[in-house]
């Protein structure tokens, strides 16, 4: 228990440290990228799927899995879509991907 609490507090501190150095230019993709990271709740859905042995357990597993998967997949995809639009000036514009296409 204490190990987990220590992990929690230290991770908060690491988070503050890393995030405060990110330029405002990238705040939207950063927020979306952090949003994808909390999709790690998929791991929780897997654990409750393994423990489920009654209807309530199955329904909650389904809900948790569907919600978590939407979060993690959508989060990473949309962040990647945003970040690949950020281009340097010397590359010809034709190289840059058009929005809405992947």
């Amino acid at each position: 228990m204490f190990t987990n609490l220590a992990l929690f507090v230290l991770s908060l501190l690491v988070g503050f440290e890393v995030i405060s150095k990110i330029p405002s230019t990238l705040h939207t993709p950063m927020m979306s990228g952090a949003n994808a990271i909390h999709g790690v709740v998929v791991a929780g859905a897997i654990v409750i799927a393994a423990l489920a042995d009654d209807p309530a357990g199955y329904v909650l597993t389904f809900i948790a899995a569907a919600f978590a998967a939407a979060n993690v997949v959508g989060g990473y995809v949309v962040t990647d879509r945003m970040l690949k639009m950020f281009r340097k000036p010397d590359r010809p514009a034709a190289d840059a991907p058009k929005a809405g296409q992947k």
């Binding site: 859905a45 799927a49 489920a52 199955y58 939407a70 959508g74």
Partner: peptide, 22 residues
């Protein structure tokens, strides 16, 4: 049953996430 609930949930949620993100 538990694993099926997980798989179906992941597939539906993942598809929804990917489509809306694109």
């Amino acid at each position: 049953i538990g694993w099926t609930a997980l798989a179906v949930g992941l597939a539906l949620g993942g598809a929804f996430g990917a489509i809306s993100a694109r």
